[in-house]
Design a protein around this nucleic acid. Sequence first.
RNA 1: CGGGGCGUGGCGCAGCCUGGCUAGCGCGCUUGACUGGGGGUCAAGAGGUCGCAGGUUCAAAUCCUGUCGCCCCGACCA
Length: 583
Amino acid sequence: MLWSKTLIPTTREVPADSEIISHQLMVRAGLIRRISAGVYDWLPLGWKSLMKVNAIIRHHMNAIGAQEIHMPALLPADLWRQTGRYSDYGPLLFKVKDRRNSEMILGPTHEECVTELVRAYITSYRQLPLTLYQIQSKFRDETRPRNGLLRVREFFMKDAYSFHPSLESLTQTYNDMFKAYVNIFAQCGVPAIAVEAESGPIGGDSSHEFICPCDAGEDVIVQAEDGTYCANLERAVPAEAGQKSFADAPAIAPEPFTTVETPHATSIESVCTLLKITPQQMIKTMVYQRVGAPDAPPVVACVRGDHEVNESKLRRLVGPVELADEDAARSKGFAIGYVGPHVANSIGVTLVIDADALMVTGATTGANAPFLHVTNFSFAARIDPQKAGAPIVADIRNVAPGDRSASGSPLKFSKGIELGHVFKLGTKYTDALGAVFADEKQVNHSMIMGCYGIGPGRILVGAIETGHDVDGIIWPMNIAPYEVVITPIKFEGNVATAATELYEKLKALGVDVLLDDRDQRPGVKFKDADLIGIPLRVVVGDKGLSAGQLELKMRSKKEPSLIALDGAAELLADMVKTLRAIK
RNA sequence: CGGGGCGUGGCGCAGCCUGGCUAGCGCGCUUGACUGGGGGUCAAGAGGUCGCAGGUUCAAAUCCUGUCGCCCCGACCA
C-alpha cells in the first residue's frame, strides 16, 4: 500500500479523552476513532491488525475442528426470557423495539442463539460433539465504558460453543481449546497467562481466564511465587481456609464484654486509630440485600478487619446479593458504620462468617448502636445459634498480601487484561431451551456445553500495553498492520525508483508492505513510522544508493544496520518469515 | 447510579471568575519560496452560529436555568 493512498491520520498531540497508553497510541497512530462513549470506528491500520488477529484465531479454531458460523446481533427477547437471562443481565442488555412493538435485544453473547440452533438440528449422540464459533460484534450497555477498547459497548468477540454427550467429551474439547488459546496468544505475540477463574455451575477446575499482565488491566490476578498457583482474585483461595463450621469457633472465656464510645468512627481505620488496636483484632460486618428483593431477610457477612469481603464468593454461597442501601438498612435497624455480628441475634438475617474471622477472640466490632463499638467479642460467646439461625462459615474474603498458596509459597498480586475465557457451562442453556439428544438406548439427555471467548480488540490493547516505547507502538510481526515500511528520504528520482522497485518486489514475495511516498520531510516520516510501529523499516536514501546500500531498522531495536540493495527484497522477505514464526 | 471535571475551527488549549473593540494561540490544512536523515524556516491564506435551548442585560463564549454529550474516580461488569 502507498501511504498517500490510505488513511493514516496520525497526531502529535495526545487526545484529551484518553488515559491509558494503548488508548492514546491507538488514537495517535490512527487505528481507531471514538464516535460515542465506548463506540469506535476502526480505521485502515487498526482494522488490518484486527483482521490479522482474527485470522490467527480462525486458524486455531479450525485446527481443533470448530466450525465458523454467523449469528444475528439482533435477537428476539423471548429467547432470553426462556433462560432467565433477560432479567439476569439487567440494564447491561441493549433493548430495542421493532415497528410491531416486539422486543428485541442486541446480543451481548450468543449462548441462547446457538443453543436454539443446535436444538433444531442435533438429536442424536451420533452427531456429538459439535463445536461452533463466531467472530462478530457484541453489544453491552456498560455503565461506564472506558479506557479505549478495554471496556466498550460494541465490540468484537470470538465466541465458541461446544456441545457434548458427556463430561469426558466436554473435558476433551475444553483441553483442546485451552491449548488452542495458548497457541493463539503466542502467535499474536501478546503475553497471556492462564489463571483459574470463576468456575460456574460444574465447579472444580473448569474455568480459566487468559490474562495479559499489565497495569492498565482491570482484573487482579494472584500468583504463587513458586509458580504453583495462579488465579483471579475473585476466585483465589487462601491456603489456610480449611473446612470449618460454627462449632469450631474458639470457646475462650471472654474478658468483660464492654461497650466503648467511638463517635464518628465508622471505618476500621478510624476505630483502630481511636482505640489503638490493629485491624486484625477487629471484625468487619457488612450488610447485603438480595438483588431484586430488598425486603427479603438481609445477608450479614463478617470478615476480619484487615480483610475484604469477596462478593463473588458470597454470592456463590447465598445467591445474588448486593451491598445494602444504607438508608434502607438503617430503617430495618442496622446501625450502618457500627454493625456487629451479634445483630443476627435480634434481626432475622443470614449470617455468613469468614473462616478467619471466626477464629478471632477478644475482637472489637460494632455495637449495633450509633457511635458505639464493643470489645472482647467472640463468636462462640456472643452469637446465639438459636436466635441467629445456623451461621454459615466459609471462605468469603479476598486473599491478601501475606497469604500463602497451598504449597506454602507467598502470593503476589498483579493487574491484567482479560483476553479470553474458557468455561465449562454444563446444561444451564440446554436445560432451559430443551436441547436434548438421544443416547444409544434412546434416552434423552440435555447436551453439556462449554463456551470459549476471546476479545480480539483486547489482544491489540494488550499487545500495545506490553509493546511500546516513547515513540509509539512496537507491533509483534504477526499482528502488525504492515510488516515492512519503506521510508524514502525524498520521494524523487533514483530514490523513488529504487524504493518503488523494492516495494513491488516485496509485494510479489508476499510481504505486507507500506511505502511512504508522501512529500514529507524525513523527520516526519520517521516519527510516523515509529508511531505506527511497523516491525521493519527500510530507509532508501541517495547516499546509501550510491554505495549500493539500504538501511534496515527493526522497530524493537535501537540501532539500524546496512544491507545490500542487491537481494534486499529476498533478505527482507526471509526476515519477515522468520519473525512470523517466532512464537 | 453517587462524586469530580470538561464541551471554544480537524486536534490540543487560552479567554469565562470581574459581561463590552474584529474570539485568540499552538499543531494540522492550503498556496508560494527556501529547505531536505528525526515532526524545518519565511510569507500569504482558508477554516469557528463558543454543545443545544431558554432567560437576564443596551450588550452574553463569559451570568442564570434547563438539556444533551464526553472524560476521570467509585459502584457495576457473561
